[in-house]
Design a protein around this nucleic acid. Structure first.
Lengths: 222, 222
DNA sequence: CAATCCCTTGTGGAAATCCACGAAAGCAAA
DNA sequence: TTTGCTTTCGTGGATTTCCACAAGGGATTG
């Protein structure tokens, strides 16, 4: 199949325009543009309702909200919702991020059909992705693939992530212990929190807790 | 005057293309594109040497390096260098960032002629900037202006920034004291470091030092 | 000059964290 | 079940940080 009706969701007008202008080089009859998630979802719903659904959504991941209370605030949410109401639509996540966690989530959980990193050759990658999707395949750009294959030394359990997040929020060890107890999360003794923080410092090669928080945040793990 | 020869420095091809495609709507005869700082500088040097200098440089700020050892790694460096070798060239910084510190540095220190935030209306702003520059004026987009006017509660002295950075690097209070003494930075008693950290926690409304580091990093102050 | 303010620094004690040792509990393989 | 490994968690003591009080120094002002 070839795509004849495509929607671009990208808040930055210059980038949106760049994609559209490049897409016009391909054989796509109808390219629509949207600068917010909510608007994109609306367009998809309407097209579906009108019996002329979009076949492909190309979506950025991060959006600055320009309305008071946007329902959808990220490409992840948009793609999730779109897949829910129109499961057969193809989706391409098109982002500057090449963080393993983000890519993993989009491919494995959200079931996006392609992931491409904006970069030097974004358009070439976009073309490849479209071709792959037309053949019912999925596509992940080389940069993202490399990121996925790079063994993630710092994979955190949900429990560890919570400890780090709470620490970053100003919780003391005792506070975290109390919090875990109130939520029935185990282990929850003050002593165990201390132990886990110590292990985390070891793993991250951090000599102090402030440094641990700094490193975790640098790696965008919290 | 009107601009007839413009250079775009922007690593992401889609964005670069977006700018170029929009510029073609204006009356600019010659638009050249560059995806790296080094390449952009080269083009400017050559044009200058050939007696047909660029009149305007539109540059992004952040570049991913795709060569082993790029000489210039950021738009800030590029603009600085370009202004040095061709002082009469006009420069527009075109970035997603609207951090006060970045904007301030570009306008006040680097003497960029315009600062625009990529966003919903990037092209409109770009047009305004070009018009202003043509009249020998400077231009700062509304978002950036707002950012500049927003009183920066968290303006840090160099001294404070160093304390935060060293803390983030795993230095204990005593370590920082020793370090400052070795560098002849005063005040440098352990007690003063403690005092400043305490003041910083107050200012940032942080209850612990890890939280302070988290907040400072979130605000991109360290 | 005295009065005042701000910053640095010291002191001492409280609080929090760090760290080593070890007991108990949980778990998996033999 | 036994064995062995890991995790949890208590204890106690060292280290570090936090906090309140106050002395001294330098700059400013009346």
């Amino acid at each position: 199949m070839t795509f004849t009706k495509v929607l671009i969701a990208e808040d930055i007008d210059i980038s949106n325009e760049g994609i559209a202008s490049k897409l016009s080089a391909l054989d796509i009859a109808q390219v629509e543009q949207s600068q917010s998630c909510d608007n994109a979802l609306l367009k998809i719903k309407r097209a579906l309702h009108d019996g002329e659904p979009f076949q492909l959504l190309i979506s950025d991941l991060s959006f600055v909200s320009h309305t008071p209370e946007p329902k959808l605030t990220s490409g992840q949410e948009l793609i999730t919702e779109v897949k829910r109401i129109q499961p057969n639509i193809k989706t391409i996540a098109f982002s500057v991020w090449n963080k393993q966690q983000i890519i993993k989530e989009l491919i494995e959980d959200i079931k996006a059909d392609a992931y491409i990193c904006k970069g030097l050759n974004g358009f070439k990658e976009l073309t490849k992705a479209i071709n792959a999707l037309a053949k019912n395949e999925t596509y992940i750009c080389p940069i993202a693939t490399a990121s996925l294959q790079r063994k993630n030394v710092f994979e955190l359990t949900e429990y560890e992530k919570q400890i780090l997040q709470l620490t970053a929020k100003g919780f003391k060890q005792q506070d975290i212990s109390d919090y875990f107890k109130s939520k029935n999360i185990t282990p929850n003794s003050r002593r165990s929190i201390e132990d886990h923080l110590s292990k985390l410092r070891d793993n991250f090669n951090a000599s102090t807790t402030p440094q641990l928080i700094y490193l975790a945040q640098s790696l965008e793990l919290i």
